[in-house]
Write a protein that binds this DNA or RNA. Structure first.
Lengths: 141, 141
DNA sequence: TTGCGTGCAAAGGTTTTGCATGGCA
DNA sequence: TGCCATGCAAAACCTTTGCACGCAA
């Protein structure tokens, strides 16, 4: 869970900078490359992928794949304890990230740990679904 | 949510047969094709994908995309229990995907829907953490 | 006979890999 | 000076699409 030994380079800094500036957002490798290119600091796709891979391995980012067609997304995980106390709910429609603190979730965590031997890490977990607003909007369609 | 009008064909039958024989399992398009090929009933990849797509649309299957590297997975949904929905627990260390059906999770889903106005979609949600084995291994380090 | 289903091949996309070069320490 | 990191291009994959033919109804 520590930084992989390695050199600091312009590319690594830029990529991490972009991600930390967009915490809690789904970002694809393409978006990163496109952004850095537009910013005048172009980085090759291979480098982006290699860098993201390292960041996922050391726990800085979380990788998830909602749709195999659009490719994988990466999200910066704030390291503070603030985020280990609550769970994240993310609306798949409007992309909003909700931070929820609820005793039900703590109970769930304990239950899973006790009865299923699995210790959930809230900082790496996102519950996906539809928020109230989008739910209505979708029903109306 | 009904069967799309269409013809019954050998290919469709075989694909659905394989899936229903492996309820609650994540199966990729490739595995299906490989199995049918070995069984002497080869089916083209395009057909497999087209067929799976239809089955997902009419609610017979659920599509998961856990990892973009291995591609999408499909799972047969027994339509008996409405609440036999399950969640996925993925160990961040050994990468194993656990498939858990637990009433606590159903309760959580209801609670979040009622009190937080958020309808969780289990097919898009994965709970990350440490499984029992890796937990011990990690404590021992 | 009608028109959907299938298979093949090609296209489209993301992600990985090999290899020579460039840059950090 | 050592090595790691980078970039380019090509490869490897998964998935979709176009088109002609086959087959269910």
């Amino acid at each position: 869970m520590k930084q992989q030994g390695g050199y600091k380079t312009r590319q690594k800094s830029k990529i991490l900078e972009y991600l930390t500036n967009h915490p809690g957002q789904h970002i694809t490798a393409q978006e990163i490359a496109r952004h850095l290119d537009a910013q005048g600091s172009p980085v090759g796709m291979a480098t982006v992928y290699r860098c993201l891979d390292g960041l996922v391995t050391d726990g800085t980012l979380r990788k998830y794949t909602i749709d195999s067609r659009t490719g994988a997304c990466y999200e910066y995980l704030p390291q503070s304890d603030a985020c280990s106390r609550h769970f994240h709910l993310k609306c798949v429609r409007c992309e909003t990230l909700y931070h929820v603190t609820c005793e039900h979730l703590c109970e769930l965590e304990e239950h899973i740990a006790e009865h299923h031997g699995f210790r959930i890490d809230p900082s790496k977990t996102v519950l996906y679904g539809l928020c109230a607003a989008c739910r209505e909007a979708e029903d109306g369609e």
